[in-house]
Design a protein around this nucleic acid. Structure first.
Length: 599
DNA sequence: GCCGTTTTCGGCCCGACTGTTTTCAGTCG
C-alpha cells in the first residue's frame, strides 16, 4: 500500500472511531474530508510530509492533520489513531456499516450491551436484549436483521457497467407508467462514478400512488424499505444479471430509491439527488452567502424573520429558480456544471461550462483484439464492427508473446497477421486498419519485443499484465522505462487495476504523467468498466499537465465497443476536452502523430 | 479540525422517512 493509501485508511478509521466515541461531529468530518482529499491526490505526500506549509496549502488539510501526516512519515504511526484503536473494538466499525445503524445507536449497543462486532449484534438480537435500548422496538430490530442479511450479500459497491443498464431499464419502465411525465436516474450513476452504492430514480407524475405502486412491485423487488409521500425505497435482486461477465463474487442485491418530485422542482430535485454531497454543500453555502437557501424544491430567498421552522416551499415562498438545473446555477451566478465534475474539485470556480469530451467525438479505436490472441472476433469481424461504429481507424492490437495465457503472438505470427491486414486493406473501404500490438511491459520495464521489431508496427500499446503487486517505486521505474521507449504510442491500462478486485500498480502518477508529456506518449483510459484505468483523478492530473489521452475499449467481443460510454464518462470526470484525446482527431492528424514515432 | 473580501473565533447544509413517540431522535443521502 502506498504512503497516501496508508494515510487514507488511518484517517477514515479515525473519523469512524471518533464518531463512536462521541467526538465533535465537525472534527469527525475534518478527518473524513482529509481522507477523501488525500485519496484524490496524484502526488506522493511523503515527499512533502516534512513541509508543514505545503501540507496546509492543500484544501481540507490544516494544522492538526498536517501534524499527523508528519508524525506518520517520521514514525510510521499516528499516536491518536493507536489510542482510538485501543479504545474502540475493531469489529465495531463493521457494525457501523449496517444500514439503519448510525454512530448513536452503535455507541449504545457497545456501551450498554457490550456489542463489539456483527456476531455480538446478532447475539443481542437473538436474545431480545436489544429491545431494552431506547427507541429500539420490534420493527426496528426486524429491519436490522434484514439489513445484516443485505450487507452480508452485497459486500461492495456495484460496477458502473452493471448498474447503468439496470437503472436505464428502471427509468424506461417508470417512464411508461400512466401519469408519469418525466423519469431519470440521478446520483453517482449520473455522475459516472466508477462504482455505485445505490440507484436513485426521479419521476414527475400526475398519479403518485400509481408510480409508487409500479415501483414497489417491479420484478426483482425483494423488500420494500420505505413507501412515503415523496420517497420510496426497495431492494432489488440482481438474479438474472449476467454475473459470469464480472466474476459473480460481488453483490446480489442493490437498493433503489424512487423520488416523486413536483414538475416545477424538476431541476432542483435533479441537482439535489445527483450530488455529490460535497458539491451540494458548496452550493448551499454559496446560496446562503447570497441570502438564499437551496433545497431539493428550489432556490428560495430568505426573508427577514424566517424562523426556519418550516421549509420555504411549505410557506408558499416563491422560488427564485427551480425548474431547470441551468436556471439554478445561473441564479447563483454560476455556469451550468456537467454532473460528472460535481465533486467539489474546483468546478464552482469555472467561468463557463467546459466543453467536455462526448461519445460522439470518438472516431478511432486504438486497442482491440482478435481470435489471433484472446478475442472472439476474427480480423474481418473486428473491422466490420469498427466500421459499423463509424470509426475512421481501427488498430489491431493482439497480445504479445509473453501473455501466453491470452495466446500472445510472437514476431513470426505478428508478421503473418500483417500480411492478412494488408490483404484486408485491399478490399476494405471507409476505414483504416492499423497493424499494431498490445505489447507486454515486463516486470523490469523492458518490452516484449526489441525496438527494431516494434518499429515495424503502426501502433504500439504498451501495457502491464504481470507483476501487478510490485512496490510503488519499482512500478514507477517500470512504467517510466516503457514510456521512454521511442516506439511506444500508448500506455495501456497503466495501473492494471480491476475495480473491487485488484489494486494494481501504484506508481507516482505525477511522474508518469510528466514523462508521458515529455515523450509524447498517450495515457490510456481503458473503457472497460472493470478497469477504468486511468481513473478519474489520474485523468484530471494528466489533463492539467497537458498529456495526451487515449480512450480505448480494449475490445475482445463486439459488445465491448459499447463500453466506450464508460471511458468517456471517466474522461469527463477528469475534465477531459476533445482536443487532448487522440481518438477524437481527424484521420490525417492521428496518423501523422502515429508516424512521427517511426521517423 | 478547518476556515475566513463581513470573521483568527464561531461558525460549519437541508429535508424525508421510520419507528417510536405524544413531539422527536436517529439515520440517510
Amino acid at each position: 500500500m502506498s504512503f497516501n493509501d496508508e494515510l487514507v485508511k488511518r484517517f477514515e478509521q479515525m473519523a469512524q472511531m471518533l464518531e463512536l466515541t462521541g467526538a465533535n461531529p465537525f472534527r469527525v468530518n475534518a478527518h473524513a474530508r482529509a481522507a477523501r482529499t488525500i485519496d484524490e491526490l496524484t502526488s506522493d505526500l511523503r515527499e512533502i510530509a516534512g513541509d508543514a506549509k505545503a501540507l496546509i496549502a492543500i484544501p481540507g488539510i490544516g494544522k492538526g492533520i498536517a501534524e499527523k501526516i508528519a508524525e506518520f512519515a517520521d514514525t510510521g504511526k499516528i499516536g491518536e489513531h493507536l489510542d482510538l484503536l485501543a479504545e474502540v473494538p475493531a469489529g465495531l466499525l463493521r457494525v457501523l456499516e449496517v444500514p439503519g445503524l448510525g454512530p448513536k445507536k452503535v455507541a449504545l449497543l457497545w456501551k450498554d450491551l457490550g456489542v463489539e462486532d456483527i456476531d455480538g449484534l446478532k447475539r443481542v438480537i437473538a436474545d431480545d436484549s436489544i429491545l431494552g435500548l431506547p427507541r429500539m422496538g420490534k420493527k426496528t430490530v426486524e429491519n436490522l436483521s434484514a439489513s445484516i442479511a443485505f450487507m452480508e450479500s452485497s459486500g461492495e459497491r456495484l460496477h458502473l457497467g452493471i448498474a447503468a443498464p439496470i437503472a436505464e431499464a428502471i427509468v424506461e419502465r417508470m417512464g411508461s407508467v400512466r401519469g408519469v411525465t418525466r423519469a431519470a436516474f440521478a446520483g453517482s450513476l449520473r455522475r459516472g462514478r466508477e462504482t455505485i452504492g445505490d440507484i436513485d430514480v426521479l419521476v414527475c407524475t400526475t398519479d403518485p400512488d400509481g408510480a409508487r405502486e409500479a415501483f414497489t412491485s417491479m420484478d426483482g423487488v425483494t423488500e420494500v424499505l420505505a413507501r412515503g409521500e415523496s420517497k420510496s425505497s426497495v431492494r432489488l435482486s440482481l438474479e438474472g444479471i449476467d454475473h459470469a461477465r464480472w466474476g459473480g463474487d460481488g453483490s446480489s442485491q442493490v437498493q433503489v430509491d424512487l423520488r416523486i418530485v413536483p414538475e416545477g422542482s424538476w431541476g432542483a430535485a435533479l441537482m439535489y439527488f445527483s450530488g455529490s454531497k460535497e458539491h451540494n454543500v458548496r452550493l448551499r453555502e454559496r446560496a446562503q452567502k447570497q441570502g438564499l437557501t437551496l433545497n431539493e424544491y428550489g432556490l428560495y430567498p430568505v426573508a427577514e424573520g424566517d424562523d426556519g421552522d418550516e421549509p420555504p416551499q411549505k410557506r408558499g415562498v416563491k422560488a427564485k429558480a427551480a425548474k431547470t438545473e441551468e436556471d439554478i446555477y445561473a441564479a447563483l451566478g454560476l455556469a451550468w456544471v456537467p454532473p460528472e465534475i460535481r465533486e467539489d474539485r474546483g468546478e464552482l470556480e469555472l467561468e463557463q461550462t467546459p466543453r467536455l469530451i462526448e461519445v460522439g467525438d470518438i472516431r478511432a479505436e486504438l486497442h482491440a483484439h482478435t481470435t489471433a490472441s484472446d478475442g472472439s472476433m476474427s480480423l474481418e469481424e473486428l473491422v466490420a464492427e469498427a466500421k459499423a461504429r463509424k470509426l475512421h481507424t481501427i488498430a489491431v492490437t493482439d497480445h504479445s508473446k509473453s501473455s501466453a495465457q491470452a495466446g500472445g503472438l510472437d514476431e513470426k505470427r505478428l508478421r503473418a497477421q500483417r500480411e492478412q491486414i494488408e490483404a484486408l486493406r485491399e478490399t476494405t473501404k471507409g476505414i483504416e486498419i492499423l497493424y499494431g500490438c498490445e505489447v507486454d511491459i515486463l516486470g523490469d520495464g523492458s518490452l516484449d519485443f526489441d525496438d527494431d521489431f516494434l518499429a515495424e508496427l503502426d501502433v504500439v500499446v504498451a501495457s502491464p499484465h504481470v507483476a501487478l503487486s510490485q512496490e510503488p517505486t519499482k512500478a514507477t521505474a517500470r512504467l517510466l522505462k516503457a514510456i521512454e521507449n521511442p516506439c511506444v504510442h500508448v500506455l495501456g491500462h497503466p495501473t492494471g487495476r480491476l475495480i473491487n478486485r485488484r489494486q494494481g500498480l501504484e506508481p507516482a502518477m505525477d511522474e508518469i504523467i510528466a514523462a508521458a508529456v515529455e515523450h509524447d506518449v498517450a495515457l490510456e483510459i481503458n473503457a472497460h468498466w472493470m478497469r477504468l484505468d486511468l481513473r478519474d483523478t489520474h485523468v484530471r492530473a494528466a489533463v492539467a499537465a497537458g498529456a495526451k489521452i487515449a480512450i480505448d475499449c480494449d475490445d475482445h467481443a463486439p459488445r465491448d465497443f459499447d463500453n466506450l460510454v464508460y471511458g468517456v464518462l471517466t474522461g469527463r470526470r477528469g475534465w477531459l476536452t476533445p482536443e487532448l484525446c487522440v481518438n477524437t482527431w481527424t484521420k490525417s492528424r492521428l496518423h501523422k502523430w502515429l508516424r512521427s514515432k517511426r521517423a
